[in-house]
C-alpha cells in the first residue's frame, strides 16, 4: 500500500510540476527581468506583465502570471511566471533623485525597494526553476549574482542564465559564460526579441 501511495505521489507531483511550473525571474535591478517576463506574456498571452522603467527598482513587489502555456517543438508546458524585484545590497534614495524623482517620492521608492528585496528572497524556496537575468553589458562577477545563483544551487533549483541586452554594443556573452561555467547561458535581447526562440528551447531543456 505504501509503495502504491509513493508511486501515486510521484505521479501527482509530476503532473503538478508539468501543469503549472513556478518559474522565477531573479537578478540584479535593471537587468531586464520584467522585460523578459513581458516578452513571454506578449508571445503567449498577448498581454504584458508589468511596467518597465530606466529608473532602478521599478518592480518593487513580486508579480505573477498564472497558467502561461508555452509551446516549443510540438511540446507544451504551462508555467506560473514569478517576476521578482531586483536584488541588491544597497539602496540609497538619493540615487533616485538623480533620475528626477522628488525627495519624498525617492524615499518612498527606496522603502518599497528594500521591502521588495526581502520579498524576492523569501520566494526563492517556492520556485521550481529560475531564470537568472543578467545585463550582458555589465561585469557579471558581482557578489549579488553569485549569491543568488549559490542559493539556488544549494536548494537544487534548476537555473538558466540569460545574458540580456545583447543588442547593446558593450554586451559580451563570453564574460557571462566565463563567470558561470557550470550553467547554460543564453544571450538574448528581451527588448528586440533577438534569440528568444533559443531561450524557449533552453527553458524546455531546463524543466524537462
Amino acid at each position: 500500500m505504501s509503495i502504491l501511495k509513493k508511486i501515486a505521489g510521484k505521479i501527482s507531483r509530476l503532473f503538478k510540476r508539468r501543469s503549472n511550473i513556478s518559474l522565477g525571474f531573479y537578478g540584479p535591478p535593471n537587468a531586464g527581468k520584467t522585460s523578459l517576463a513581458n516578452k513571454i506574456c506578449e508571445d503567449w498571452l498577448g498581454e504584458s506583465m508589468g511596467e518597465v522603467s530606466p529608473i532602478p527598482h521599478e518592480t518593487r513587489h513580486v508579480m505573477f502570471k498564472e497558467k502561461v502555456e508555452i509551446e516549443n517543438n510540438g511540446k507544451k508546458l504551462t508555467f506560473k511566471l514569478v517576476d521578482t524585484p531586483g536584488i541588491t545590497t544597497r539602496i540609497d534614495y538619493e540615487d533616485f533623485i538623480k533620475y528626477g524623482l522628488k525627495k519624498k517620492e525617492a524615499q518612498k521608492r527606496a522603502k518599497e525597494a528594500t521591502e521588495g528585496i526581502i520579498e524576492s528572497i523569501k520566494w526563492i524556496e517556492d520556485m521550481q526553476a529560475v531564470v537568472v537575468v543578467l545585463d550582458a553589458s555589465k561585469n557579471p562577477y558581482s557578489q549579488v549574482n553569485i549569491t543568488i545563483i549559490g542559493n539556488l544551487a544549494a536548494r537544487k533549483i534548476p537555473v538558466l542564465i540569460v545574458a540580456n541586452k545583447m543588442d547593446l554594443r558593450k554586451a559580451d556573452i563570453k564574460k557571462v559564460e566565463a563567470a558561470f561555467p557550470e550553467y547554460k547561458v543564453v544571450g538574448i535581447s528581451a527588448r528586440t526579441g533577438k534569440n528568444i526562440d533559443k531561450f524557449y528551447e533552453a527553458l524546455f531543456k531546463l524543466v524537462k
Binding site: 536584488i87 545590497t89 544597497r90 539602496i91 527606496a110 522603502k111 528594500t114 521591502e115 528585496i117 526581502i118 528572497i121 523569501k122 526563492i124 549579488v144 549569491t147 543568488i148 549559490g150 542559493n151 544551487a153 544549494a154
Partner: peptide
C-alpha cells in the same frame, strides 16, 4: 549561501 541572503535581508530591513 543561505547566510549570505539572510545578510542581504537583514541589511534591507535596517535601511530606513
Amino acid at each position: 549561501p543561505e547566510e549570505e541572503t539572510r545578510l542581504i535581508e537583514d541589511t534591507m530591513a535596517m535601511i530606513g
